[in-house]
Simulated scan of single mutants.
Amino acid sequence: MKLQHHLGGIENLGPVNLETRVFVEPWEQRIFGIHTAMMAESAHLADALPAYSIKDLPTTFKSDWTWASLRTGAEDMHPFEYFKYRYYEKWLGGIAQFFVDSGYISAPELEKKSAFYRAQPNAALPDRPSAPIAAQINAYLQQGDSGYHEPDRAPRFAAGDKVRIADPEAVDHTRLPGYLRNKTGVVDVVYPGSFSYFVSTGADGIGKPMPVYRIAFDAADIWGSGKSEPNTTIYADLYEAYVQAAN
């Protein structure tokens, strides 16, 4: 979805939220915890760097769940709904829909459980993770997983090259900020190695490992001189699929 990925520069979205707290409400911490536990139990970690013993993990969760999964759920929301809900409310909606779509729980079952806890907010919650799962979560929080790969070809561009950013068709999930589409910048850094993403984005262009660049843009070229502070440079890390030679 072009509209809901990196909203910089879109006008009339209302005042900027200057809240500095990571979690505003206690329930937001639990949503973050659920997402983290899902990441730590994700089936894709069997082939990740570093490797995790997913096959031996005593969990009934057998799906892939990554940051891409979370963002796809948010970007798939109707724009009116997306702008209406708070940050972690979007997380909750995406996670809940994932469990329903994946068959872990039915929509009626989820509604029944939700109604139960709304009526009895002090009721006991499900058991905490078992010791092996808790250890896996702690390991994942410390080590994460990496999309780095040894390169199999040279990058197409070098530092100092003038480039134009592509404008691929809208897909379920993208890593291209909407405000950079069709903009011109200069390659500032070519990162060593190649990098993959959690999922293939199809027509968007992300799939096999590829070079990633840090590209510098004059802020006035993005938002116009009347809406930019002078002498301001915007930097963005972009996959090579989004980078084209400037004409």
Rank of each mutant, 00 (worst) to 15 (best):
A154M: 08
P108W: 11
P121F: 01
E109K: 10
H149S: 02
Q120V: 09
V22T: 15
A134M: 12
D161W: 03
Y213N: 11
D152I: 12
Q244H: 06
Q136I: 04
R214T: 12
D127R: 14
D64K: 07
A170H: 08
I215N: 11
T201R: 09
R71P: 00
R86C: 06
V24Q: 14
T60Q: 09
S63Q: 11
P151H: 01
L18Y: 10
K162S: 14
A170E: 15
F61V: 01
D167S: 12
D56S: 12
V187S: 05
I34A: 13
L110V: 09
K62A: 01
I234Y: 12
Y179I: 05
E240G: 03
V22H: 14
G226Q: 15
A68F: 13
P168I: 05
L3R: 13
A219N: 13
K113C: 11
A166Q: 06
P58Q: 03
V24R: 15
G94R: 05
P192A: 14
R175V: 01
A245R: 15
K208F: 00
W223E: 10
E150P: 01
K62M: 00
A170S: 15
A135R: 15
E169G: 14
T184E: 11
P132T: 05
D188C: 09
D167C: 11
W223N: 13
G193T: 10
L125N: 08
V16K: 12
E240Q: 14
R164T: 13
G8K: 10
W67H: 06
